[in-house]
Each structure stands twice: as structure tokens, then as C-alpha cells.
């Protein structure tokens, strides 16, 4: 059984112009010890999906359908009190801005101890301090930094502290939403390598979210690409490097200038993302797709799973799948 199973997840936002689904029928699974990447451009629903899994949706957003199972337990049905047993202990989260959310007037030591004491009952302060020291070591942070305040640490070090905190209770799943986007590339590289190393040591799984597809393809075992609230394609890293199948993924991969290979003109993706309050019928990518067929305008592409992963595009539809979709859509 997969560690995490997300099935047909639907998350709705209320807006002044009416409700819209930021996540509309997204399915994927994360295996134990796997780094699963969720890629896509702004507004595609990747962060909303992560917040839905971690039950961090607030205010205007709520889950309106689908399921999120961890080890077979339906997370969306748990009460807040029941879910508290999952927070930090089994699922922890690292956000892009987390390094700026450390308490500025508390020493690093106190913040780590607080996090440990809040979630581990029956542990002494001295033990918590010892654990805080171990966590610092894990994240390659000199121990004397425990006595420092956040502003005395560089951005990269603060983000390492946040990652160390996320590891405190040895969770099975760590959700990382653009964990290195605010950092310089050299600092980013050090942290990314550390995450991969810690994952090997402790065997946790990672849901890694970024808009940076080259970075994602460097570290993830499998990658899901979202577009306008839907999953366009899921494939193993090697498969995607050998050639993506969905025209949107192909376009995204073409949009990143490479540091190797011949210098060629890149074409990007013409047009812009659709309005989710009134999404187009059929495939949401069709207006920007260079391969669009007549059927793309009327029928939502069926999700096809195979050995190569999952793709949701009429170009790869088998005849019977197409008939089924047409019947369902009519």
C-alpha cells in the first residue's frame, strides 16, 4: 500500500465572482521513501493540494470532494483533535517563507525545544535540549547556533533550522512547498543535497512542490505536473527526461534555458491560463495546445494510467477510453 493516496481531490475557493475549484479531481499516490514532485505554474493548484493534504486550508478554501488516505486512514474525515496526532508526528510541512516565520525574539534552542515538547509528551526539558542538538547536527548546523537568534543566521541556515524542526518527530511524510525558492542557488544546492541525504537515512517520503522543473527533475523520483487545477501528467523522472507526453509538460520543459547542449531558440507556451471561475469545456489546455483536436473542445481528456505513468490527454486516448469519455461527457 502506498503511504499516501490522493483520489479525485476537489478543493473549492469562494471568490467575489463566485466559487471556483482550484483543485478539480486530482489523484496521485506517494510511496514510502519516495520524493514525489508536484510541478506547475502559478495558480495551477499545487500548493492548494498540499495544504488540503495537511489540512491547512483556511477561510475561503475547503475540500468539497475526494479522499486523502494515509496508511489506509481517511484524513479528510478525521476530527481536528484526531488529526493533531498526525501533525508533526506523521506529516510535517516546510514552507518557502518558513525561515522568516521563526520567532525573532527567541533563541533557536528555545524554538526547537518548544516544538519537541509540544508534540512529545513525557519528555524532560533536558532530553528535548539533547534532541535539539541532534537535529542541528542532522541539518549540518554548528551546535553553537542553538544559542543564537534567527536574525544572526543566514537565510540558508534559518531554512535548515526549519527543516530540522520538521524532522523532530521523525514524520513519514514531509511536505515541502518551494523550500529553497527564496535562496541563492549555491545555498539551495546544499539544502537540496541535505534533504536527499536525510531521506536516505530516515526513509521518509517527501511531497516536493516547486515551479522550478529542472530542480524538480534533479531530485524527485516521480513528478506530477498540474495545469489549471487538474493533473496533466505523472511520470518517473527518467521517463520525463526521455520525453514528456503531455503537450503542456513538453512546453514547460521547453521554457527553461539549459546550461548544456546547443543554444536554440525556445518557444515557451503561447497564451495564458484559463479563468477557473468559468473554465473552458473539455481540455483546459486546448487553447494553448499546438496539437489540439476537435474532441479537445468538448470532452475532458480521460486519465490514462499505464506503465509509463499517468497522462490526461486525447492524443494518447485509446479508442475505447475515448468512447467511454464521450459517453460520460454527453
Amino acid at each position: 500500500m502506498s503511504l499516501l493516496e490522493v483520489r479525485d481531490l476537489q478543493i473549492e475557493y469562494a471568490s467575489a465572482r463566485g466559487p471556483f475549484k482550484a483543485v478539480d479531481g486530482v489523484s496521485f499516490s506517494i510511496e514510502r521513501g519516495e520524493i514525489f514532485g508536484l510541478a506547475g505554474e502559478s495558480g495551477c493548484g499545487k500548493s492548494t493540494t498540499a495544504y488540503g493534504i495537511a489540512r491547512l486550508l483556511r477561510g475561503a478554501a475547503r475540500i468539497v470532494g475526494g479522499s486523502v488516505r494515509m496508511d489506509g486512514v481517511e484524513l479528510t474525515k478525521l476530527s481536528d483533535a484526531q488529526f493533531d496526532a498526525y501533525r508533526w508526528a506523521r506529516i510535517s510541512i516546510v514552507l518557502q517563507s518558513a525561515m522568516n516565520n521563526l520567532n525573532p525574539v527567541m533563541k533557536i534552542k528555545e524554538q526547537l525545544i518548544d516544538a519537541i515538547l509540544a508534540h512529545r509528551t513525557g519528555i524532560s526539558r533536558a532530553d528535548a535540549l539533547r534532541q535539539a542538538g541532534e537535529l542541528m547536527e542532522l541539518a549540518d548546523l554548528p551546535k553553537d547556533r542553538l544559542e543564537r537568534f534567527p536574525h544572526e543566521l543566514s537565510g540558508g541556515m534559518r531554512q535548515r533550522v526549519v527543516i530540522a524542526m520538521a524532522l523532530a518527530l521523525r514524520p513519514e511524510l514531509i511536505i515541502m512547498d518551494e523550500p529553497t525558492t527564496a535562496l541563492d542557488v549555491i545555498t539551495q544546492k546544499g539544502i537540496i543535497d541535505k534533504i536527499v541525504e536525510l531521506k536516505r537515512t530516515f526513509g521518509f517520503s517527501v511531497l516536493f512542490i516547486t515551479h522550478d522543473l529542472p530542480l524538480m527533475l534533479e531530485i524527485c523520483d516521480r513528478v506530477g505536473v498540474m495545469y489549471a487545477g487538474r493533473m496533466a501528467e505523472i511520470a518517473a523522472r527518467e521517463r520525463m527526461l526521455a520525453g514528456a507526453r503531455h503537450p503542456y509538460t513538453q512546453g514547460l520543459l521547453r521554457s527553461f534555458p539549459s546550461l548544456t547542449g546547443p543554444r536554440v531558440r525556445l518557444e515557451g507556451i503561447p497564451g495564458s491560463t484559463p479563468d477557473l471561475v468559468a473554465p473552458p469545456s473539455g481540455c483546459r489546455f486546448r487553447d494553448r495546445c499546438p496539437h489540439a483536436l476537435p474532441v479537445c473542445g468538448s470532452v475532458q481528456p480521460p486519465v490514462q494510467a499505464g506503465e509509463d505513468g499517468v497522462v490526461s490527454c486525447h492524443l494518447y486516448a485509446k479508442e475505447d477510453a475515448l468512447d467511454e469519455a464521450a459517453a460520460a461527457g454527453s
Binding site: V185, K189, P214, S258
Partner: peptide, 17 residues
């Protein structure tokens, strides 16, 4: 060299840390 090696590029061969 550090900047180059730290820049993500999955098609490049892995480089010495």
C-alpha cells in the same frame, strides 16, 4: 564553477560536491 554546478540542470552529469 560553484554557481554553474549548483544551478539545476537534470540533463547534466552529476558533478563533484
Amino acid at each position: 564553477k560553484a554557481l554553474l554546478y549548483a544551478s539545476p540542470d537534470p540533463r547534466r552529469e552529476q558533478v563533484e560536491a
